[in-house]
Design a protein around this nucleic acid. Structure first.
Length: 253
DNA sequence: AAAACCGACAACCGCCCCGTC
DNA sequence: AGACGGGGCGGTTGTCGGTTT
């Protein structure tokens, strides 16, 4: 068919995203939604291809992204589902609230795969039998009903009982690791005391990935001169349906 | 102290699916 | 029915930071 490649023009930026680019993308999408990924960068004032914008948004900037280590329950689910489905990362991600397919895929390749090999677990063929996939009952792949409960209650909107799992092995680190998110100083809560301070509001407020980073940097970017109004009608209704109260916070504060 | 190595993760690329015309 | 285009997915690569030699 000969589709035009993503970067048909030279001059489009590649590589790591800068905080400035992130700001532009978040500001634009929270205001106008992603009505067309291919056209979006033009209007958002970004010299990136649409796919790159989509990936950045989906994997790191959109609300409700869970940042931190994988819990044991999550790992069990990944392993079980991977044994049944193979490399269906998106399907697996759909069962893990806040996790992205990319993150799961990376985690699998860097950690779980080795674990499975160590335990002599049979790894599926690279091309799984897709004929039976629609019959698959996902719940049978989950470790236990309790685990499901745990996962759901540990979604970003609620603290859940597995908080300790998000921290590293050290007992005084908090639920979010100090991963260099957006390459900036990223607010991590380093002690249980600090967590107590946050605990009340944090889990009841609409979740924002990177919390203070986004709050401090993105809310003031509404009138970014680089942003243009889209040609198309706004799809905010659709956007609200998708992301719940998150953008209401952004839009109307 | 420097180089080599390795692991983790972010991002890119190309293919495929699906909706639209 | 088939061409087209956008979005989604999975494989792969690039980069960076930490560790080992």
């Amino acid at each position: 068919m000969g589709r035009t490649p993503c970067r048909e023009k030279t001059g489009l930026k590649k590589g790591a995203w800068t905080p400035e680019e992130d700001k532009k993308l978040v500001a634009y999408i929270t205001r106008y939604g992603h009505w067309n990924w291919r056209e979006l960068p033009k209007f958002a004032g970004l010299s990136r291809c649409g796919k790159s914008c989509r990936l950045r948004w989906m994997n790191y900037l959109r609300p409700n992204i869970k940042i931190g280590n994988f819990s044991r329950e999550e790992e069990e689910i990944i392993i079980n589902m991977h044994q049944a489905l193979g490399n269906k990362w998106a399907t697996i991600a759909a069962k893990l609230p806040g996790r992205t397919d990319n993150e799961i895929k990376n985690h699998w390749h860097t950690n779980l795969r080795r674990k499975c090999l160590k335990q002599n677990l049979k790894l599926p063929e690279s091309k799984p039998d897709t004929s039976s996939k629609q019959k698959l009952e996902f719940n049978t792949l989950l470790p236990s009903a309790q685990s499901v409960q745990t996962l759901e209650s540990s979604s970003p909107l609620s603290p859940g009982p597995s908080l300790s799992d998000f921290s590293s092995s050290s007992t005084d680190s908090m639920f979010v690791t100090s991963r260099n998110w957006l390459g900036d100083e990223y607010s991590t809560v380093s002690s249980p005391d600090k967590f107590e301070e946050l605990n009340g509001d944090f889990w009841t407020e609409p979740y924002m990935a990177g919390n203070s980073y986004i709050q401090e940097n993105f809310q003031q970017t509404w009138v970014d001169p680089g942003i243009q109004f889209p040609l198309y009608p706004l799809f905010l209704e659709d956007y609200f349906c998708t992301y719940g109260s998150y953008e209401e916070d952004y839009m109307f504060n």
